[in-house]
């Protein structure tokens, strides 16, 4: 295996493990205030120090991992769950009504970056983590639809698809049996990329107050709250940022590694 892939797996695994572990155990209660202990630098008791309200930063980061990963994961689920079937259906009848409609829908959704959607949702419904999930997920839909459509289109011209049609298989069945397995690697790589972009987007939205609301722990909001104290205690801003970088870097390395490992051009005529 390639070193980048291993490093990616390790970093992503660390973030995932921290998030899962926080469900049953954190060093301190991430929501417990201890004003006397505020802005303490890293120590044996508080590995990453404490914030302006005396909360343990390490514990908050673990709990925040849960929020970040969950938001990004659900957003990828929404994007892939809606986008992939749309893209497959559009490719199955190239130039058909659905194909044209999908192109227009993609144009429309691309006009609403996640931040703009989140602004709209927050303005009309009030702030919540659900807004962030919806805003990021919605923007993922055309991304997955495009990848699925492009991958499927290149396969639909191949003779083995014609062979399946001669065997009497319908377009939906061909899409499931022959197209999906052969574009799975493309989709997995895209999902990894969208996952990492989702974590960045969630952090950004929480930072400007459009995402997770207190007391839900969130890396982005930790940074927003840290901003005022950054001159007094840089560690308050340093560690949440590093947590984001490590997770996103891990996912990006994983995505690149998977692309290289799954790219048919690098495997000769295997696929």
């Amino acid at each position: 295996m390639r070193p980048a892939l291993i490093l990616g797996l390790c970093l992503t695994g660390t973030a995932l493990a921290a998030g899962l572990l926080s469900l049953i155990w954190t060093p301190w209660d991430p929501t417990a205030l201890a004003v006397t202990q505020k802005l303490r630098p890293p120590s044996a008791a508080h590995w990453f120090g404490t914030d302006q309200l005396g909360r343990d930063i390490a514990s908050m980061l673990m709990a925040g991992a849960r929020t970040s990963l969950l938001v990004a994961l659900v957003a990828v689920g929404i994007g892939a769950g809606v986008g992939v079937p749309l893209g497959l259906a559009a490719a199955a009848r190239r130039g058909g009504a659905l194909d044209g409609g999908l192109a227009r829908l993609n144009d429309l959704i691309f006009a609403f970056p996640a931040l703009v959607t989140a602004i709209l949702l927050t303005a009309s419904l009030g702030p919540s983590a659900t807004n962030a999930v919806l805003a990021i997920g919605l923007f993922n839909i055309p991304v997955f639809a495009r990848v699925a459509r492009a991958g499927a289109l290149s396969l639909w011209t191949l003779d083995y698809i014609r062979a399946a049609r001669v065997a009497g298989k319908g377009r939906a069945r061909i899409s499931v049996e022959h197209i999906v397995p052969n574009i799975a690697s493309l989709l997995i790589v895209q999902a990894t990329i969208q996952f990492s972009l989702g974590i960045l987007a969630e952090a950004g939205l929480s930072y400007v107050g459009l995402g997770a609301q207190p007391p839900t722990p969130s890396w982005g909001r930790m940074l927003a709250e840290a901003q005022t104290f950054v001159t007094l205690a840089p560690h308050v801003a340093l560690f949440p940022g590093l947590a984001i970088v490590i997770t996103v870097l891990g996912l990006n390395l994983l995505g690149d590694g998977l692309r290289d490992a799954l790219d048919p051009r690098l495997r000769g005529r295997l696929t």
Partner: peptide, 22 residues
């Protein structure tokens, strides 16, 4: 570049402020 695309720009901005402004 790999590191660059993994950094949230607002956090990077805070680091810049810490270094260049403060």
């Amino acid at each position: 570049a790999q590191l660059g695309i993994s950094v949230p720009n607002f956090w990077f901005a805070m680091l810049l402020v810490l270094l260049f402004a403060l």
